[in-house]
Design a protein around this nucleic acid. Structure first.
Lengths: 343, 343
DNA sequence: AATGGATGCTCAATCGATGGAGCATGATTG
DNA sequence: CAATCATGCTCCATCGATTGAGCATCCATT
């Protein structure tokens, strides 16, 4: 008898509830979306509707609601990768914050692929997101244009753009502080006073530029000039970093590692050295990983302040679609290693 | 003049395109959704539509489409956390696979909170997901019930349930192999022959149960009985693991670490020991992290085969809503450390 | 010239929720 | 007692994309 009902399980709609209760769909709708007082529905009917909704396991059809109201209640975000703690933390905090705001978070990961980035942004726009956050995007301005064309506000996170508000970390100061820390460790532990080697990233990336600037300035403070060959930027891939280190004419001993993904390459390289050589290396990393921080030659890591980044981002989000393309910088946290290693 | 146009920017719809091209919305719609050949639209018109769509930055309104077709093309997944490589990799591969399938992936993270888990599942159901994947859910059967009530197929990943197909790792075999590896290292490097200590997880968790079983059996093979006190399960939190280790009557020297989050606690504890004590410890971890694998006392890690898990999951997904609640086990990859450490 | 078929489109109903407009009914006021 | 107002609803158009059911043309047959 109920066979069809068992297999195809039509979802309950406001029309089903209205029929069941002998009332109108509008009444049911207004009860379920909370506008019933304004629409002068009696408390008695409201309670009957709520009970029936409970009994039938009613779940609203968000598509229909969004179509009608022209807002989906979704806040979208694109992130490049889930292969490091930073983006993982960003994703978690973002979800928490958006949910606390009564909205629905949708995150999509773009594999650091510019084409996928655009496709994902377009995808999210198709879901009529109320706002789109571009985190670590390679081409934030292109995304901002897409959003603009759909009248959707957008915000850049972690990497700045010129067509939407940006919330980023203060890479310069943190890189300068980290460089000082590594230089100190090299002098103290290894008796070295020369320039460090900067590994990882790309120069077309704003953060890498800023970090290099901090790196160079921290050297300059001490009267050290950084030779061009000491800055190697093979992009964001562990094995490229390793290969670049192996290709160096002279084995570097003090390293500024720009990202945990570069760090993976660095530690693989260090593993390939013999233990004495490995012990005579010191490095610091711009990025944080709880295990990376404990590797023997690590002198410290820079951790981005994800909580502050996200709350500043929300503040910008609330300013709405017409917000000016300001860039807000949030300080990082320098995690110097507590247990000093004797050389 | 265009002031309003600049601020409110109505999104382009098929009606706008139809008007612009002097054709009908149906024609535009069928071109944009690919059904135009079947509907005998000329290639000429198709090209004109596509070009106009390109020019205006048209993005389809998925809400409207989903409302009409009663399928959203969204595949939802809930994951507990983004604080380790496993869930990060699961999220990435899932997105890739779903996208390759022509669908849209939506992942939501539930902070290992059972209440949030249900709320997130309900949220995804409201978006009319075509399928819901419950990854590492604490109560997969409750989620399966919700999905069933809406007629939505569901699959359990990483942790099994009894009301939907499950795709999980073969924890037992991997735990047994890892235990053998740690026992060997303890004998070789430290001359120990006693029982290891199992740290992390909860016994109400299927995977932890299986891992404990493999752990105990690997000991039994060698005639070792594991004392009850050697199995400590303080849950999934780094500092609980650390506290539990500190509270032990005797300092353990061979450890089976059940998850990277427990590993964080373990390495913090090891850091607090003096170097000689620390050097006389060996551990293996059930979970993989590229940096965790390189810490000095680590003898190996078990990496779950995410690619296989995801492809098996897709295979189950394609079986549709009526699929039986089978449990499929995928073998893990044991990553034994290549560079042996001398004691 | 009439018939049949292919071609290339358009019309209009539909999905579920929403909300402005309006319609009874009963209570209150001048 | 008519006029006014508040209360508690219902009606129906609407959001944008989809799709079954047509409706003109045009060409090829017989």
């Amino acid at each position: 008898m109920d066979r069809q009902n068992l297999t195809s399980q039509r979802r309950t709609t406001i029309y089903d509830l209205a029929q069941r209760l002998g009332t109108s769909p509008s009444a049911v709708s207004s009860v379920l979306n909370g506008s019933w007082r304004k629409r002068r529905i009696s408390e008695t009917l409201a309670n009957r509707v709520l009970q029936a909704a409970e009994e039938t396991g009613y779940a609203p059809n968000i598509q229909a609601s969004a179509l009608r109201r022209d807002r989906s209640n979704i806040v979208g975000m694109i992130v490049p990768k889930y292969d490091n703690r930073f983006f993982g933390a960003v994703a978690e905090r973002f979800e928490q914050a958006v949910r606390a705001n009564g909205q629905f978070p949708v995150i999509t990961c773009t594999q650091r692929d510019p084409a996928l980035e655009l496709e994902a942004a377009r995808g999210l726009l198709s879901y009529q997101v109320d706002c789109l956050v571009a985190c670590g995007a390679t081409d934030p301005d292109r995304i901002a244009e897409l959003c603009h064309a759909s009248g959707v506000p957008t915000i850049n996170l972690d990497l700045p753009g010129s067509k939407a508000p940006s919330v980023i970390s203060d890479s310069y100061s943190a890189a300068r502080d980290l460089t000082r820390l590594i230089l100190d460790a090299c002098t103290r532990d290894l008796g070295l006073t020369g320039a460090l080697t900067f590994v990882g990233g790309r120069l077309d990336d704003h953060n890498t530029k800023e970090r290099r600037r901090g790196f160079v300035d921290a050297h300059a403070e001490r009267g050290i000039t950084v030779p061009a060959g000491n800055i190697i930027m093979p992009g964001y891939a562990a094995e490229r970093a390793r290969a670049a280190l192996e290709a160096l004419p002279e084995r570097p001993r003090g390293l500024f590692v720009n990202s945990t993904i570069a760090l993976e390459g660095v530690v693989h390289w260090i593993q390939s050295l013999d233990p004495d050589e490995a012990a005579a290396i010191r490095y610091g990393t711009f990025d944080f990983d709880p295990f990376g921080a404990l590797l023997p030659q690590s002198v410290g890591m820079v951790q981005q302040d994800v909580d502050s980044l996200i709350s500043e981002m929300l503040r910008q989000m609330r300013k709405g679609p017409g917000a000016p393309a300001v860039v807000r910088e949030v300080p990082c946290i320098l995690r110097a290693r507590a247990d000093h290693i004797s050389a």
